[in-house]
Amino acid sequence: MPDTTAGSVAAQPAGSPAVPRVPAPRRRPAGTVYRGREGMWSWVLHRITGTAIYFFLLVHILDTALVRLSPSAYNAVIDTYKTPIMGLGETALVAAIVLHAFNGLRIILVDFWSFATRHQRALFWVVVALWVVTMAGFVPEQFAHVFGGAS
């Protein structure tokens, strides 16, 4: 292997005093952030939203399962969901799901349709546009419910 041949010869020059070697360096030093473009950032967003949705589902299964243990405890938990903070959380959840859904369709197209593979960058902005349109339809109504007490 390259790091045991040339390197070790240079490390021990004849006649030089034995210098204690520094501890083995970390082999994979962290560098700067790679400057990827739309494709990479869409992947990052897909990961983040996907993980967030997963944790929501975990909690959601637990709170729904609560109804089998005690209906009153279930009601108490559901009541806390009606606070404005949870309302904002709901908005964030919908934002994450909408982005994940549209970008998921983009990824399927990229994998199966060569036109989409070539125009993936434009498709990402289509996803963003669809996300903006969907959220524009949802957010005013949601905020009216959360802050206006319309429900």
């Binding site: 473009r37 494709g39 990479m40 992947w43 990229v110 994998d111 593979t117």
Partner: peptide, 22 residues
């Protein structure tokens, strides 16, 4: 994961992600 970093990076202009999709 189709991040397309490879296609952007290729100094020969190979459509790498497209080749992987194929």
């Amino acid at each position: 994961r189709t991040t397309f970093n490879c296609t952007e990076a290729c100094p020969r202009g190979i459509e790498v992600t497209k080749a992987i999709a194929e």
